[in-house]
Simulated scan of single mutants.
Amino acid sequence: MPEQELPLFDYNEVQIGEALGSYEYLLTQDMVDLYRRAVDDPDAVFPTIAVKHDATSLAMAYDDQTGGVNAGNEIDLHNTPIPGKKIRVTGRIHDKYIRRDKPYLVIEATAMDEDGRLIEKMRTYQLKKPEELGKKWHPQG
């Protein structure tokens, strides 16, 4: 079956509350161990942040050729994910706004395990005009 072509991301057209991609994956002990090595903490208990739930959800819904610059993250951690359990991720547009004449998008991803336990809610703030980055240090003149 051929891959479905995604619609181009258009900041002006996306709606607050709009659903993005949803998916499941099996959290393995190897994933947990790899994350713990990467953060140099043998007891790290919230490895799902390494999976990029937010970016994956957006990429499943849109072909985002504009790119974006990470302007911040918020994460609410609720329960420790358990290796061997499936994690279901749902994404949505949480907010969008203009600040200092620049468009921002807030993507929210919610992760729950197969038993219905809420693992995390993550919100990522993206500046949707990446060409703006660094302009204050390199003014036109």
Rank of each mutant, 00 (worst) to 15 (best):
Y23R: 09
E74K: 09
G91F: 01
L77D: 08
Q29L: 11
S57P: 00
R36Y: 04
I87F: 07
D33H: 09
V89A: 08
T80P: 06
T48I: 15
N79Q: 14
A59D: 11
P42F: 08
G91M: 02
N79C: 11
I49D: 12
M60L: 13
T48V: 15
N73G: 07
A19I: 04
P83A: 14
H94P: 00
Y97A: 08
A50G: 15
K96H: 05
R88M: 13
L26H: 09
V45C: 12
D54K: 00
P42T: 07
V45A: 14
E24Y: 11
K96C: 01
A71L: 07
A59E: 08
D64R: 00
P47R: 10
D63K: 08
Q29Y: 04
V89W: 02
P47Q: 10
K85H: 15
N79T: 14
I82S: 05
D63W: 03
I49F: 12
P42G: 10
H94F: 13
L20Y: 03
Q65K: 12
D54L: 03
A55I: 03
G91V: 00
V89M: 08
G67C: 11
A71R: 06
T48N: 14
A71T: 05
G67T: 08
R92Y: 03
P42V: 10
E24S: 15
A50L: 09
G84S: 09
M31F: 13
G72M: 03
V51R: 02
V51T: 08
T48K: 05
D40I: 09
G21I: 03
K85C: 12
I75N: 06
G21V: 03
M31I: 11
S22K: 12
L34K: 14
H94V: 01
